[in-house]
Nucleic acid binder design. Structure first.
Lengths: 350, 350
DNA sequence: GTGAAAGCGCTAACAG
DNA sequence: CTGTTAGCGCTTTCAC
């Protein structure tokens, strides 16, 4: 749009109007709301458009006049994190299906950057999907007053949210381990940077207690491959027969470390992760993990926004539907979990 | 921007101008080109802006008046493909650093969709980075006449391109295998969907011949995990001691299949991939691969666009710098390649 | 250094 | 169903 050629001068609806002998507004209607012009007129307009080689309306002028950008923004905490890929994909697809553009942004795990981003984007987009926002509840509520936002994997009362279920999938994970005979678990925690991460332990603990399993929380460990060594030390020291890791990266780090120490998985010990990641499937053994339906989260978040836009356009300025939508997270049982080997069960801690 | 509240009425530069007792144009200048108003006036404007709680210029009006969106579009063939993640990341970061927005689009491996996308986006963005475009050279040249585009991993004369080196990195891969004693290679090909893929074989063949290695092309195989079985069959039948796969997915598929058949890698056979993927590192054994610097490609492509914008803004409508920029692809030697086991070298084909 | 005025191209009341 | 008339908020000549 800094045009490549010095003087482009594309034809406008005024040119078409003159050529067709109608008013510019009629041309506009012929394109926007074809039902509101006579078939004859519309045909004339289309024909005239062809003659003056009109290439369609200039979206920016349209945006300016309508005060709608047909664009949705998606800031994520870390764009290099493969885990957000699904979210981005789901959101992009849904947006595209509705004719919306999707602008991607990276808040770099920083509250300040996220704030600034939201501020900047606010004027340029119709709505914002906030992936795993780091902002405080209060900040988010404040923003929601003037912006159409929906939160993904973050639950704030009064704001439309869509989260991956933790309760149910973690229950299933514990149940899965229990059914394999495990009685002593170790939770290899990550840092409590995100809302989902901080809820994880309580959910895990509750589920374990309910099934009569012992679970001990260890860490925090760096949620990367590099955290694997320390986490493995802790795991082995705990005497647990199965480890549940904060996320998939840490899970793979542990698997690697166990392999390096000659410990067979799942023959001797089992490992499962609370957050899936794309790579989990390709590892040997493939990692059993709770898999948040990231793409579905993205789709749903955008859908919520689109619904809201529709209502707003219809003049409905009521509060948005604000209940949290919980999407089922699955437990993907793969090769890293197996039955407790009878002979090798370790002494449990007191 | 379908505003959340019925009547928002943000203050405009007119409000600020009135409050400050200056002309609207002066307010505009105070924000856009501070050097062109006196310090005193600027201070007055800023102060007035504060008093009327002016929140900054409305970007869409600005866009409309200036005819520049400060937005770059990035259509990729398949947004779910993790390989494009790096490209997206690099482009997004560079764009953000320059204050540009990045809109993401998915051309779904379809020429028609890609065309439509470009058409739609053309008016809404300042420039387009085309990732691994499927369009014909002619189409691309045509588009480049009216749009600022840069091609990534596609080389078309007359259009600014940035590609990952194939020659050098493939040479190094072959050299690496040769140095390990391999003399018979199998290339497990994928479909020739992309420009890079179709050049790969010639480069491989040339490099092998130069080093006196035999290489046989097999396939095409589906470039996914699922292609692993058939590819492995072919590899084993070929009698080669090392396989080079079309891409990382296929490489991992082969590794898996070999593991399932009890064949040790790299002790008995070696495997390397022509295209890296994020997962390669996490596999056991980690896959040796040629790694295109995807992030760097994204950064560079956006930089090229930004340079061009700058020149255009300066009234320089000359053809864009059009030479192809070749970025070094590295060979990442990991655990899947090793020396040929002397005793087990297989009989080679005639 | 500052002001006046003319748009940018389209949409959206409001009449008729 | 169609035309008239105002803008949308900012930038940008062109004078002074």
């Amino acid at each position: 749009m800094p045009t490549v050629t010095p003087d482009p001068k594309r034809p406008t609806i005024y040119d078409v109007a003159r050529e067709a002998g109608v008013a510019p507004s009629t041309v506009s209607r012929a394109f926007t709301t074809p039902g509101r012009v006579s078939d004859r007129t519309r045909a004339r307009v289309l024909e005239a458009a062809r003659r003056v080689s009109y290439t369609g309306r200039y979206p920016i002028a349209r945006t300016f006049a309508r005060r709608r950008t047909e664009t949705i923004a998606l800031p994520v905490p870390d764009i290099t994190n493969v885990n957000y890929m699904g979210l981005i994909t789901g959101a992009a697809r849904r947006a595209a299906a509705a004719g919306y553009l999707l602008v991607l942004a990276d808040s770099e795990e920083s509250v300040a950057t996220e704030k600034r981003l939201i501020d900047t984007l606010a004027q340029s987009v119709d709505g914002i999907v906030l992936g795993a926002s780091r902002l405080s509840d209060d900040d988010l509520v404040e923003i929601a007053k003037t912006q159409a936002i929906v939160l993904v994997n973050r639950d704030v009362p009064g704001i439309p949210c869509v989260v991956a279920d933790q309760q149910h999938s973690v229950d299933r994970l514990i149940e899965h381990l229990a059914s394999l005979g495990h009685r002593d678990l170790a939770y290899l925690a990550g840092p409590r940077t995100s809302w989902t991460a901080s809820r994880r332990w309580e959910v895990l603990a509750t589920a374990s207690v309910r099934r009569g399993l012992r679970i001990v929380r260890m860490g925090p460990f760096p949620p990367f491959l590099s955290g694997g060594a320390a986490a493995t030390d802790a795991f082995l020291a705990s005497g647990a027969t199965a480890a549940v890791t904060h996320n998939g990266m840490l899970g793979i780090g542990v698997l690697r470390e166990l392999a390096a120490r000659g410990i067979a998985v799942p023959d001797q010990l089992s490992v499962a992760a609370c957050d899936d990641l794309i790579t989990a499937e390709f590892f040997t053994p493939p990692l059993t993990a709770r898999a948040g339906p990231m793409m579905e989260l993205g789709r749903t978040a955008v859908s919520l926004l689109l619904d809201r836009f529709e209502r707003l356009e219809a003049g409905d300025y009521s509060e948005p539907a604000t209940g949290t939508i919980v999407l089922p997270a699955e437990l993907v049982v793969r090769g890293s979990t197996g039955p407790v080997p009878d002979g090798t069960r370790r002494p449990t801690r007191p």
